[in-house]
């Protein structure tokens, strides 16, 4: 049956053994017919929110695409000036936190409170580790006068340190590195803001998980937060090669 015809003529309900159970779980809101309807609505709502997030970051990614093509040399030099090792460690940290978050969802699903709390805590710790490393990177950029604005200094790009195989840029092209750093700070900054908000929510979830509500069937908040956290991870998966690895050889 095609999708359109299933929508117009819904198939007869399948019969399930448990379907005449009429008790409502404690977390079911009054305006939903069933807990299942509530869960699917919440998860769909979260996905729609992530849809807006895709478009929110989408504008920045398009700006990156445009300027990288316009000012490729400036982007290469500027990209090589940021610390790739820190970026790599951060990638591993963030993917690790995504893994612990996925495990937290699993713990809630199999109703293991202890494991849930351990994995949530691990996610918080890894989140803070990411932000800590990021702060270090930002500090370096401030020290090198690579932050766009009045104190921006193109010296490093016009006269690269001898011994490296960096290409010396013309003054005009070196000025365009400001665009790279504008995007670098805008993209990683908005990403870090998402991390900070996420960690805040995580701590909240950790607090409420003590009462055990998430491990008695009410998986939804953990699951939805997991979707958010994985999304933030995906953004970083793209940011890492685009910002740190333009042309390293």
């Amino acid at each position: 049956m095609s999708l359109a015809s299933t929508i117009t003529n819904p198939p007869e309900p399948e019969i399930h053994a448990s379907h005449d159970v009429h008790e409502h779980p404690f977390y079911q809101k009054h305006h939903f017919e069933t807990a299942e309807q509530q869960r699917e609505a919440a998860s769909f709502g979260m996905w729609l929110f992530l849809l807006t997030e895709i478009m929110f970051f989408g504008g920045l990614f398009f700006a990156y695409l445009l300027y990288r093509n316009w000012y490729y040399d400036a982007f290469v030099s500027a990209s090589n000036s940021i610390n790739m090792v820190m970026g790599l460690i951060n990638t591993i940290v963030l993917i690790g936190s995504s893994f612990t978050m996925a495990m937290a969802v699993w713990s809630a699903e199999v109703r293991n409170k202890k494991l849930l709390q351990i994995f949530l805590l691990a996610t918080v710790v890894l989140g803070f580790a990411f932000l800590g490393i990021k702060t270090g990177e930002y500090y370096d950029k401030f020290a090198e006068h690579h932050v766009p604005g009045a104190s921006f200094d193109i010296h490093d790009f016009v006269h690269p340190q001898p011994g490296t195989n960096e290409k010396a840029l013309s003054v005009d092209m070196a000025n365009k590195t400001q665009i790279f750093f504008s995007l670098y700070f805008a993209m990683t900054g908005v990403h870090a803001l998402h991390m900070i908000i996420g960690i805040g929510i995580l701590i909240g979830l950790l607090w409420y998980s003590r009462s055990g509500i998430y491990t008695e069937g009410y998986v939804q908040p953990i699951e939805n937060f997991g979707l958010y956290w994985h999304f933030v991870d995906i953004v970083w998966i793209f940011l890492f090669p685009l910002l740190y690895l333009i042309n390293r050889h």
């Binding site: 445009l66 400001q178 995007l183």
Partner: peptide
């Protein structure tokens, strides 16, 4: 506020973006 220059022609940005 902080001088990020994505649309700023003096820094190479494109106002049309």
């Amino acid at each position: 506020t902080i001088g990020i220059g994505v649309f700023d022609p003096t820094k190479g940005g494109d106002p049309l973006l």
